[in-house]
Simulated scan of single mutants.
Amino acid sequence: MPDILLSRVEPENNCYRFYRISIEPNLFGDHSIMIQWGRIGHLGRVRIASSGERGAINHRAGLIERRKIKKGYVRQDAKENLTLWGDDIIEVDIQP
């Protein structure tokens, strides 16, 4: 499963947020969900949400993604434009 990049942009509320969900192998032979979130243009915070076998972790990542979409986040494609931090640019279309 590739990284899931979500964003929520509401200029009228000064809200420019990103949320990234990735699945990474851990030292115990299982996989972990790594979540990074924060304001667009900043590093944000990182946490490990849960660990386990790959199938269960994929399912859990999907649940997290759906919960964020219900809160107003939009999934971003790789070809769009979003600057998360520094010089690293990921493309995101902010238009609805």
Rank of each mutant, 00 (worst) to 15 (best):
A49P: 06
K68E: 11
R8K: 15
S51I: 10
N58R: 15
G52Y: 10
A49E: 15
E10L: 10
R67T: 11
S51R: 14
K79C: 06
R47T: 11
G41A: 11
G72V: 02
V74D: 05
R66K: 15
I57G: 12
N13K: 15
R17H: 12
W37Q: 13
S50K: 14
Q36M: 11
G72L: 04
N26F: 05
H31S: 03
I89V: 11
N26M: 03
S50P: 04
G44A: 14
R54K: 15
K79P: 03
N81G: 05
P2Q: 13
I69L: 14
S7A: 06
V74R: 12
L82H: 09
G44N: 12
P11R: 05
Q95Y: 04
I89N: 03
P25Y: 03
I48K: 13
I64D: 01
S7V: 08
I4F: 05
R47L: 10
W85F: 14
E10C: 02
L6Q: 00
G38W: 00
D77N: 12
I64W: 06
H42F: 14
I94F: 09
R45Y: 10
M1H: 02
K68N: 03
D77C: 03
R66F: 06
Y16M: 09
P11Q: 07
G38Y: 07
R8W: 01
I89G: 02
R54D: 12
A78T: 07
V74I: 13
S22D: 13
L63C: 10
P25T: 05
T83W: 01
I48E: 12
C15A: 04
E65C: 12
R75D: 00
S32N: 07
N26H: 05
S22G: 15
V9M: 02
S51N: 14
R20D: 04
Q76H: 11
L84D: 06
G52Q: 03
R66P: 01
N81M: 07
G86A: 01
W37C: 11
H31R: 04
I23Y: 06
Q95M: 08
R20W: 00
Y19A: 00
A61E: 12
R39G: 04
I23P: 11
M34I: 15
I64H: 02
N14Y: 06
P2A: 09
I40M: 15
I89L: 02
Q95W: 03
R39F: 07
R45H: 14
P2F: 08
